[in-house]
Amino acid sequence: MKKIATREAYGNALVKLGKENENVVVLDADLSKSTKTAGFKKEFPNRFFNMGIAEQNLIGAAAGLSTAGKIPFASTFAMFAAGRAFEIIRNSVCYPKLNVKICATHAGITVGEDGASHQSVEDVAAMRSIPNMTVIVPADGVEAEKVIFKVAEYNGPVYVRLGRSAVPTIFDESYEFEIGKGIEIKEGNDATVIACGIMVNEAIKAYEILKEEGISLRVINMPTIKPIDTDIIVKAAKETGAIITAEEHNVIGGLGSAVSEVLAENYPVPVKRVGVKDTFGESGTPNELLEKYGLTADEIVKAVKEVINKK
């Protein structure tokens, strides 16, 4: 299976997008080689702005550029975009609903060796809490590229969460991404796992494991955390009676919370959230950290059995 990091796909998509739309401008904060905006910089030097190690101004300047009709894509690591620049995003981008795309890379614990200081597990929660913000977490390279093209068409603030590590490609080119829509990728009746980002692939693995045991698991890919696809969640709750969420993020405030909110208000069923259990990460290889912090197919399998028992 072909493997590519979502940040890599983002960088490729930007170059293609830059050719199609001359209003697209890219801003970075001294991380263009890591965030993969360097390709755009090479191709369109006049439309690329390195803002230096200054994330607040990265977002503020992007806001200003957008008021003059530009479509700024602002990139840095998720920790510094959603964390350090939070209030600039809140007041200068979301309050006036400006057309700024914040594409944050190196999200989650798969940053790996850099350790807890760089492992953002709160960004989705923070971004999701701001009115007017759209939050998207692509699962693979194909989806990431399609997301970038879609958010460029959409007029308003968007936070796109991208990863450092290469991940298996799940979708083929026929896959169609739509903002605000979840997509059922495996049919099942006994329980439903709703996943985003790198956990979608783990959810598919869990589906295979459980199939062997005679348990039928529905798998939903939920790339848009906000606005969340209420219909597909409620339908899954009605038809399968138990929900598991899976994300590379704190179980507080992210996909797990978003899904739980929908269920609590519409159709309560047993829920189990797989994710980082309200703790900081540490240095290590991405795979070892995923294992240690319970972000695996096995953990999803355990959670599925637990919720099915509660039905």
């Binding site: 702005f49 607040q56 101004n57 977002i59 503020g60 300047a61 992007a62 806001a63 200003g64 550029l65 957008s66 008021t67 003059a68 009709g69 530009k70 700024p72 209030e87 600039i88 007041n91 200068s92």
Partner: peptide, 16 residues
């Protein structure tokens, strides 16, 4: 209203 931010946005406008 949140201090510092208007100046930053003004820089972005001037860049545009």
């Amino acid at each position: 209203g949140s201090l510092g931010q208007g100046f930053s946005a003004a820089c972005g406008m001037a860049m545009a």
